[in-house]
Design a protein around this nucleic acid. Structure first.
Lengths: 138, 138
DNA sequence: CGACAGTACATGCACACGCATCTAATGTCT
DNA sequence: AGACATTAGATGCGTGTGCATGTACTGTCG
């Protein structure tokens, strides 16, 4: 179907269809890329260090956060809901990787800090993490 | 810390750290981009059409699949495990959007086809889908 | 033909997620 | 100060997911 044989409104429709297809393709590439990286991260981090990809992101955030990090800051950094973050911190605490400390100035909030074990776990997992990224990205 | 003041092995470490940081940044961008698009898709498709983003991907695959599509083909197309795909098809069937048909040549497999309702749902949801993509991508 | 490996899909199970809601603390307005 | 809205984080609940396994069927080899 050639454009110069089509009425104007059909030309416009055809042009926007092309643009639309581009968007769809871009989305599928994004999705495929994300899935590949994430599932590989998930597997490798789990089997070598016993933590998930989101757990790692939280540890990394805490390790690079100048030591005082509120739970809400984590919610912003990793792409999870507030409730998921709350449970994530609870899991990390149960495994002894972080500690929850009351925040004295605003007693609704809590500070989350890495334990020594948490910092070690992070440094070990970091190698695996970077390894996976360099394998699966690009 | 300037490179020309560092011993060779430290220079190399610094250079690879830079490359590593690039990878990490790329991953975070990919993650942020994916999350933004996916959650918006999920919300908007759910509230307007009562289907999730993965359900939509399945419908789209079926609508553009020359009418005979095995369950395993869907697993390849959407980024889910085989079991998740199986349940997804079950949900779609329960909502009357697809039908499962036995495959006579290989009676282990099933064919999944869109119903008329499924095709309508797809066409309606497609507009929303494209709308969200054009808002959130780029 | 009969046993046995392989394949396609379904299902039990444990678990992480989001939504809605709850609790406790803070801020605001009169 | 007292009432009410707001905020930080925890939790009950329903649901979707992956892993391991089950079930039915196919293909191969002796």
């Amino acid at each position: 179907m050639r454009l110069h044989l089509m009425p104007v409104h059909a030309k416009l429709a055809a042009v926007s269809d092309v643009a639309e297809q581009g968007l769809v393709q871009e989305w599928h590439e994004l999705l495929a890329r994300y899935s590949a990286v994430f599932t590989t991260l998930e597997c490798r981090l789990q089997e070598r260090h016993g933590i998930g990809a989101n757990e790692f992101e939280a540890l990394e955030r805490l390790a690079t956060c100048d030591f005082k990090c509120r739970s809400a800051d984590l919610t912003g950094a990793i792409h999870l809901s507030q409730s998921a973050t709350s449970r994530l911190v609870a899991r990390l605490e149960k495994e002894g990787l972080v500690e929850r400390a009351l925040c004295e100035v605003d007693r609704r909030g809590i500070f989350v800090t890495l334990t020594d074990a948490g910092r070690e776990k992070y440094l070990a997992a970091k190698r695996t993490h970077r390894e996976v990224l360099s394998e699966t990205l690009r």
